[in-house]
Nucleic acid binder design. Structure first.
Lengths: 141, 141
DNA sequence: GCTTGACCCTGTAGTTGCTACAGGGTCTAT
DNA sequence: ATAGACCCTGTAGCAACTACAGGGTCAAGC
């Protein structure tokens, strides 16, 4: 096996649909690979790493714009660190906020699932937990 | 104040944009309310409860399809609640996976910020941290 | 050397879950 | 009667894909 990959191989290696790979290229997130004589895209290991990074970041809830910023950050290894440090700190704060949000969500879901008595929907605590509280459910007066 | 609400009131009560309320109606998630003589939507407390349920579920990260399923289940009071439990469990598993991934990223960013106080970012490992394991990152042979 | 089938190409339109107009109608108050 | 806040329908836009349609390429097998 050579050092280049067709788009399908790249897709399988990164769990990305072929159309999505082309989409990333179209919006400039993934650089244009060289083409074979038959006009097929020929990717190298750099593309593979970059795409892996993109996919994982997306999975973690970063927007494409944020992924772009992260990639720039990773690319500017020669630059003095200060400008980059700020971006990194910003991302760190955001990641920490995201973790906190998800943990709160997880706790709620855990509470729901734990309380589920496996009875009928009538007694289902999950549904109950999702239903509005007193302030909205009951009319005053 | 009467027992019915205009769309704007409903929106304010549930922190939902008016356009979003109409959107939920259009896709059949919220039933059509009766109309006033002037063709204004007139919602009742049932709509308010249902919309609250939808918004809360959305807030907890359930997709509209999942919300639809939950609503259907909530309506079938005699059915066993296993299906509800399954939706919640599936969602919980997803949330837990995301937290674990974000924690890995957080640790990387923390290390980076700590390391990166002065000098260059040469040792930045964020790409590596988010890149796939050996199977993909290193070519065999 | 010709076909079959897996793969690739471009381009465009659809999806989800909203959100934002445009171009109007209604209602309440002054 | 006129201003302003609200409502109506309809359509188009957004992010981030995803799914075609209508073709071209290429290795394998007969």
């Amino acid at each position: 096996m050579s050092d280049t990959f067709a788009i399908g191989e790249l897709g399988r290696a990164t769990d990305t649909k072929v159309e999505t790979v082309r989409y990333y290229e179209r919006i400039g997130l993934l650089s244009q690979p060289r083409r074979t004589s038959g006009n097929y895209r020929a990717y190298d290991r750099g593309h593979l790493n970059r795409l892996s990074f993109i996919r994982r970041s997306r999975d973690l809830g970063f927007s494409l714009d944020q992924v772009r910023a992260l990639l720039d950050l990773a690319d500017q290894r020669d630059r003095p660190c200060e400008a980059v440090d700020e971006i990194a700190r910003g991302h760190l704060a955001e990641v920490e906020r995201k973790i906190a949000d998800l943990e709160a969500l997880r706790d709620e879901l855990r509470g729901m699932v734990r309380q589920c008595g496996h009875g009928s929907v009538r007694d289902c605590r999950i549904i109950e937990a999702l239903s509005p509280g007193d302030a909205l459910a009951a009319a005053p007066g």
